[in-house]
């Protein structure tokens, strides 16, 4: 009786799975790295999104003035 390998006759699938897994890891890592990078033009002004928006002078949201998570002015 022959010793079994891990994937037997499906060995040809292993590089595809490896590639797919590598792409997945790389993509999610890149997503995490990009998400912690500071965006161009974004300045800290008081530490909160409300303070930052008010500092732009375009919009002064009233307390609780959010609609589906977005600011409504």
């Amino acid at each position: 009786m022959e010793a079994l390998t891990w994937t037997g006759a499906l060995t040809w699938l292993n590089p595809i799975l490896g590639l797919s897994a590598a792409i997945m890891v790389a993509a999610y890592t890149a997503q995490i790295v990009v998400s912690v990078m500071p965006r161009a033009g974004l300045r800290s002004a008081g530490g909160t999104w409300r303070a930052w928006i008010e500092a732009q002078g375009e919009c002064s949201p009233k307390p609780g003035a959010t609609l589906f998570g977005q600011v409504s002015c």
């Binding site: 079994l4 390998t5 891990w6 994937t7 037997g8 006759a9 499906l10 060995t11």
Partner: peptide, 14 residues
Amino acid sequence: AGIFVGPTAGIVGA
């Protein structure tokens, strides 16, 4: 594939 071919698909298949 393992369900259908069993040990032919290796340890994972078996």
